[in-house]
């Protein structure tokens, strides 16, 4: 069935198509230029990203080095869950964190049902969306994005890009060296639904809370300013 369908569909599509060759098609596509992106909410890239994270019902923190990142994580999970435990993927960057310094007890692997907190180290972040980008794989099993109550995501400020076009450029640079990942996930907030009377509810299927830690040389004022701008 599928073979005859395939032949029929291809033949009908061919009849209705312009019949241009690949080079012409590529040139036409290039001539269409680039799509406009959403304007950033302020001039500074870090602040803009943080504003959009907060607007997406996320929370955010800064950490200038690994020690601070670990401390920030510890404080956050203790405050919310009174625990020191979390689940993280087998990402070498996460394995290299000084967890013991802050008394955090990570388990490396995929989240199992019942474990409330997961931690990911994003490959990228996109200021336009207030989103982090993770790839599926050993370093970040899909369950860690999708099944936790609370998803914490670290991202290096050097991996923050302005818009989706810039994100795809970076993703291509990465996939030129590594294999294409099975999944590329842009995550911009906790799981939500408005399917009942249009009322926004968080934790529809996945995380109820989403916490982003921006690592690197980011001035503390960026977060303060983001909070004052994003506050309703």
């Amino acid at each position: 069935m599928t073979d005859s369908s395939r032949a029929g569909i291809f033949s009908r599509v061919r009849q209705a198509s312009a019949g241009a060759d690949s080079a012409e098609i590529a040139a036409q596509l290039r001539s269409l230029g680039r799509a406009p992106a959403a304007a950033l909410p302020c001039a500074d890239l870090y602040t803009s990203f943080l504003i959009n994270v907060l607007k997406n019902h996320g929370t955010a923190d800064l950490a200038s080095n690994r020690s601070e990142a670990v401390t920030a994580t510890s404080k956050y999970i203790y405050q919310h869950y009174n625990t020191h435990r979390l689940v993280a993927g087998n990402d070498p960057r996460l394995a290299a964190m000084p967890w013991r310094e802050a008394g955090v007890l990570p388990r490396f692997g995929a989240l199992e049902p019942g474990e409330p907190v997961s931690l990911s180290y994003a490959r990228l972040a996109v200021a336009e969306l207030g989103a982090v980008v993770t790839f599926t794989g050993k370093a970040n099993p899909a369950a860690n994005n999708l099944l936790a109550e609370n998803h914490i995501v670290m991202v290096d400020c050097m991996d923050l890009v302005v818009d989706m076009e810039a994100a795809w450029e970076r993703i291509r640079q990465i996939t030129d060296q590594e294999q294409r990942p099975r999944g590329v996930n842009f995550i911009a907030g906790p799981s939500s639904t408005a399917d009942i009377e249009g009322k926004q509810i968080y934790g529809a299927h996945g995380p109820r809370q989403w916490h982003v830690i921006l690592l690197g040389d980011v001035p503390a004022t960026a977060l303060q300013e983001a909070r004052s701008i994003a506050a309703p």
């Binding site: 989103a131 599926t136 899909a142 294409r180 099975r182 999944g183 996930n185 842009f186 911009a188 408005a194």
Partner: peptide, 24 residues
């Protein structure tokens, strides 16, 4: 559609899990 400026999950899937994958 909804007046949002982004959706929570925007995902791109290529196919089945590969050798080095742990899930999918």
């Amino acid at each position: 559609a909804t007046g949002q400026s982004q959706t929570c999950y925007t995902s791109f899937y290529s196919g089945p899990r590969r050798e080095q994958d742990v899930d999918g």
